[in-house]
């Protein structure tokens, strides 16, 4: 079994960084001191990712307030809207408001990436909102249909991918919880498949992962299998492996085996068992393991503690996770 591991969303901020961001709000520290701490912490996250043998590094995306903000704040046509609950969690994002046709200023997203990633792009994993999730969460006041927005966001995200590939990035992970939370049907499902086509074209030979979470992945499997991506991931805290249809799947299979909704550590033998069962049912070319949902639902300490199950499972099942 070929096993790869890595983060599937932003990491939590360690306590000193939380304190520093609060201190900045209260005028007790300077932006320069906070920036220095961000950089130091990103290096620590990268070092952790390397120690754990992850396939690619992220730096934790610690600066992003939420995954949509780099776009809502930088792409023309958008405004930053009200606080909105993120799925069934006690966390919130600011809803992007689409006021007119969105336009992507070149370089604006790259400027929001962790600086440490820009130094080693070939090792970096870029996090992006998937076009369907992005279109689903925004307040669409543009006058365009929701399907047209999915198409349009797919094209713009493809432009980002092309630009980032030009900088040397080789791995892109699209966060798409809405594909399982509210699976699209009919023309909207077709729009999702079409939305990923320009992304596929922009990728060249780079890898693309679509990561779903927050609900049972099985109802969305037929659509996920149609997406032109290297792999798609499902959240095993929500999806029963025994119910996965038997098939030989073309794309890689992502399995969310670390549950960020509990501080309880995963049992290595149990994880290995469930991964083996999923592999037997789907026969994917590659298994990607990671947190089932963004790790920042946990505080830093339990989050990093729980990640240690990934290399252990990778070691037990595969080739050490660095094939």
């Amino acid at each position: 079994m070929i096993v790869r591991t890595g983060l599937t969303g932003p990491a939590p901020r360690p306590e000193p960084l939380i304190t520093a961001t609060r201190d900045l709000d209260r005028g007790r520290t300077t932006p320069e001191a906070l920036e220095e701490l961000f950089e130091r912490t990103e290096h620590e996250v990268v070092a952790l990712e390397r120690r754990l043998g992850f396939e690619s590094i992220t730096g934790g995306y610690l600066r992003w307030p939420d995954v949509f903000r780099p776009f809502a704040e930088n792409w023309e046509g958008f405004a930053v809207g009200p606080l909105t609950r993120w799925l069934e969690t006690n966390t919130f994002f600011r809803q992007p408001i689409l006021l007119g046709p969105p336009v992507r200023p070149p370089g604006s997203f790259a400027a929001r990436l962790p600086p440490t990633l820009l130094k080693e792009p070939a090792q970096g994993r870029i996090l992006l909102p998937g076009p369907y999730t992005f279109a689903s969460v925004l307040d669409n006041r543009s006058g365009e249909t929701d399907e047209a927005i999915v198409h349009r966001l797919g094209r713009l995200l493809a432009e980002e991918v092309a630009e980032l590939c030009g900088l040397g990035f080789r791995t892109f992970l699209f966060l798409e919880p809405w594909l399982v939370v509210r699976p699209p049907e009919g023309p909207r499902a077709e729009a999702v498949v079409a939305g990923y086509e320009p992304i596929r074209a922009a990728l060249g030979g780079a890898s693309s992962l679509v990561w779903t979470y927050g609900a049972d992945g099985i109802p969305a499997l037929p659509l996920l299998e149609r997406l032109p991506v290297s792999a798609f991931g499902i959240d095993l805290a929500e999806t029963d492996v025994e119910r996965l249809p038997l098939a030989r799947q073309r794309a890689g299979l992502g399995l969310g085996v670390v549950d960020p909704r509990t501080t309880l550590g995963e049992d290595m033998a149990e994880v290995a068992k469930v991964v083996r069962a999923a592999h037997e049912r789907r026969r994917p070319p590659v298994v990607w393991l990671g947190p089932g949902a963004p790790l920042d639902l946990l505080p830093w300490e339990p989050a990093t503690r729980k990640l240690h199950v990934l290399p252990a499972v990778s070691q037990a099942l595969g080739d050490g996770g660095r094939s």
Partner: peptide, 10 residues
């Protein structure tokens, strides 16, 4: 107590 979890922004 396990630590702080983000509610939103900072």
């Amino acid at each position: 107590f396990q630590g702080h979890v983000r509610s939103f922004d900072h």
